[in-house]
C-alpha cells in the first residue's frame, strides 16, 4: 500500500508533538533542584551564591534530555526524513 506524502507529513507532525512530551522530565527535575536549592538557602543563607551556581549547572545538565526531544521534533518537522 502506497502512503501519500501528506499522510506522512501529518504523522511526522504528530510524532513531533509526541517527542516534546520529553519536556515533562526536565521540568520536574529542574523544579526539584530549585526546591532543594531554596531549602538549602533557607538553612544556610551565607552560601547563597555557591548554591545558586551549583543549581544552575545541575539544571542545565538535567535539561539535556528535554533538548534531545526538542531536536527530534525539529528534525521531524523541518528536515522531513520520512517523506
Amino acid at each position: 500500500m502506497e502512503f501519500n506524502e501528506n499522510f506522512v507529513l501529518g504523522c511526522s507532525a504528530i510524532g513531533a508533538g509526541l517527542a516534546l512530551i520529553a519536556g515533562i522530565g526536565p521540568g520536574v527535575g529542574q523544579g526539584i533542584a530549585a526546591g532543594h536549592a531554596a531549602a538549602a538557602v533557607g538553612r544556610n543563607p551565607g552560601a547563597k551564591s555557591e548554591i545558586t551556581s551549583t543549581m544552575l549547572l545541575g539544571q542545565a545538565v538535567a535539561e539535556t534530555t528535554g533538548l534531545y526531544g526538542l531536536l527530534i521534533g525539529m528534525i521531524l518537522l523541518f528536515v522531513k526524513p520520512l517523506v
Binding site: 542545565a60 545538565v61 535539561e63 539535556t64 533538548l67 534531545y68 526538542l70 525539529m74
Partner: peptide, 16 residues
C-alpha cells in the same frame, strides 16, 4: 556529542 548538542539545541530553540 552531548556537550555540543546541549549548546546547539539551547541556542537553536531560542532562535526558533
Amino acid at each position: 556529542i552531548s556537550l555540543s548538542l546541549r549548546l546547539f539545541a539551547n541556542v537553536l530553540s531560542g532562535t526558533v
